[in-house]
Amino acid sequence: MLEGKFEEASLLKKVVESIKDSVQLCNFVCSEHGITVQAVDDSRVLLVSLLIGNEVFSDYRCDRNITLGVDLKSFAKIIRCGGNDDYLTLIAEDSPDSVTLVFEDKNSDRISEYSLKLMEIDNEFLKIDDMDYDSVIKMPSIDFQKICRDLSTLSESLQILITKDSIKFMAEGETGNGSVILKPRTDIDKPEQSITVKLNNAVNSTFGLKYIADIVKGTSLSNQIVIKISNRTPALFEYKLQSGYLRFYLAPKFED
């Protein structure tokens, strides 16, 4: 049996809102370590990999592995019914055909209970090896979101160039071009404002902005985004959770 209690419903709300436009049907695999999701979008360009570690929960028990096949659009509708600050408990039997969500308002005795029917989802699981990346950058997630949104007004593609002392984001379109250059900086008072670059090789990679527009929906999950890039392979965009992560793997575009 699964019983996982979130101190605040807002975390699961944010997670679901962050991935529901990338993937619709996915298996939430629950184990003693927490909850994991791996799902690929319909075009097979973007992969979502989620780990909500058991330490995120104020109470967590899962005696044996349980798979919850969830339609995220329906899940999002139910999860919006709860308040952000409510306790949220997920409950499922060992071989469930539904999952129960219990919201408890901390300021009153109100308890709301919803159940979502589960589905058999035949998901292919992709094996992702740990890779050595050419470059790893860490920067404020909100800045990355703004840069991508700004440049998406010009082009469908985002070019990322990384050298030892700069990160350059570029977009070239029919109406004009744009670029934003960032330099590494350490902010001691506000570490979340820092920008770091680790470089093994200089990077020049291009990605579809429509996918990045979905990735940056994870911005509210973490102050910083970690981007790991190698030339001509999928890049990893990661928002760290208190225990766990939301990762997106995005296949690059190649210049003809």
């Binding site: 690929v40 075009s43 097979r44 360009v45 973007l46 992969l47 292919e124 699981f125 992709l126 094996k127 992702i128 593609s157 291009t206 579809g208 392979t233 999928p234 793997y249 296949a251 690059p252 575009k253 190649f254 210049e255 003809d256």
Partner: peptide, 14 residues
């Protein structure tokens, strides 16, 4: 112009 690749070329089924 640029061509979008897919993850299938990089990651194999488990």
């Amino acid at each position: 112009t640029s061509t979008q690749t897919t993850l299938s070329s990089f990651f194999k089924p488990f």
